[in-house]
Design a protein around this nucleic acid. Structure first.
Lengths: 206, 206
DNA sequence: TTAATAACAAACCAACTAGTCTGTCAAACT
DNA sequence: AGTTTGACAGACTAGTTGGTTTGTTATTAA
């Protein structure tokens, strides 16, 4: 066993910080930011106060870091980056939505969408939370607009559709649907409302 | 000044209880259930612990009472009862949505929809919260289905529309849109996404 | 090799918070 | 008028929670 590997396993600041972030993210999804307990995160991470306050100056800073370093990359990977690969945005969006549906396991049903959860709870609590989260929404929105405009240019989407409006509507509809599943702890809303959403998207074809 | 009026102003159990409920509801909208402080409610109500625990056995019971006695009646009055008066559901729904938009003042922008707020935060916290809130969603959903079916029977809505699916989609879309406004502290999402929602509803006409 | 520093461990603290308990006063009942 | 009871007031408590402080060990630089 090499010395280098032992070094990494004994002390690794980056890994420690990341572990705290990941667990904090999970905790926020389950209990909300206000329900998150620093002690609880530390217990799950098998760390102590010393470690936590070495990496973060406060619980609030942890919240900000979770938004910037966990939530934002997740949204980019899950909802934004796939958009770029669509040849026909209509088909792509429908498939993306189906993928999201399949991704929701029974266990995750009452968890809801990470972006929407943090948005609804954290954005009213603190202005610095809100602006950062709003930035993520903007990123997603802008990427959707770009994709829709490209779809129009390439002749897949009817010219009468307004990319800006459609993008906002799609964002809202998806979040609303997932929010329902969370309350019902049931994915029927995903299938039922999803059918209408698909109809709407189909209606955008040229 | 009559004795009866003085009596009412000095001690009135029902009014006291209602005052606590109303203030608790506001606090939950602003800071969430977990952010709500019993002491904070009492201070706003100019009451003390003795009054609170005379009317409620715990903070959780207060939460349940807020759901049953404030949130539920609000949803019924705001979203359910108007449905019955629609002659043409398409026109009615569009008007109802416009009313909701006009109702959102700048001050209320970051408050979001009461139903969605309580749903997203409280339903994962406790099963008794969740079931009651899900019941409210069911009430709204069922009323919408009924209205849509009536619209089909009366020839205002095309027969190919599936009331159950459309109802879920409308619920989700509305909540999603309001949720966006909350984060942006801006009603542009209401106008932008709202235009698409209106297009969708128009598409349901015979 | 050694001094300096980064990365933690863990006891400790002050503020907060839901809930309790005892007491008081008004209103209804007899 | 006197008694009982409902509707509170307000001090108090036990447990929690974010944050501090002091100490220790691993890592790095000189």
């Amino acid at each position: 066993m090499s010395v280098a590997i032992d070094k990494v396993s004994v002390r690794n600041a980056d890994a420690t910080r990341q572990k705290i972030l990941d667990i904090a993210f999970e905790e926020i999804l389950l209990k909300g930011y206000q329900g998150l307990r620093v002690d609880g995160v530390l217990k799950k991470a098998a760390l102590t106060k010393g470690a936590f306050y070495h990496h973060f100056s406060s619980k609030k800073e942890l919240g900000l870091a979770v938004i910037d370093e966990v939530l934002k990359p997740w949204v980019e990977e899950r909802w934004i980056e796939p958009l770029e690969d669509f040849k026909n945005p209509i088909d792509g969006l429908i498939e993306l939505f189906h993928e999201a549906r399949d991704e929701i396991t029974v266990k995750e049903l009452h968890t809801g969408c990470p972006l929407n959860n943090l948005t609804q709870e954290m954005s009213p609590l603190d202005e610095s939370f809100r602006t950062r989260i709003a930035g993520i929404w903007d990123d997603w929105h802008n990427a959707l607009v770009k994709t829709l405009e490209r779809g129009q240019k390439d002749g897949y989407i009817r010219a009468s559709a307004k990319p800006n409006n459609v993008a906002r509507f799609l964002n809202a509809a998806v979040e609303g649907i997932i929010g329902q599943c969370k309350c019902y702890m049931d994915d029927k809303a995903f299938y039922e409302a999803g059918e209408c959403l698909q109809d709407y998207v189909e209606g955008l074809r040229t």
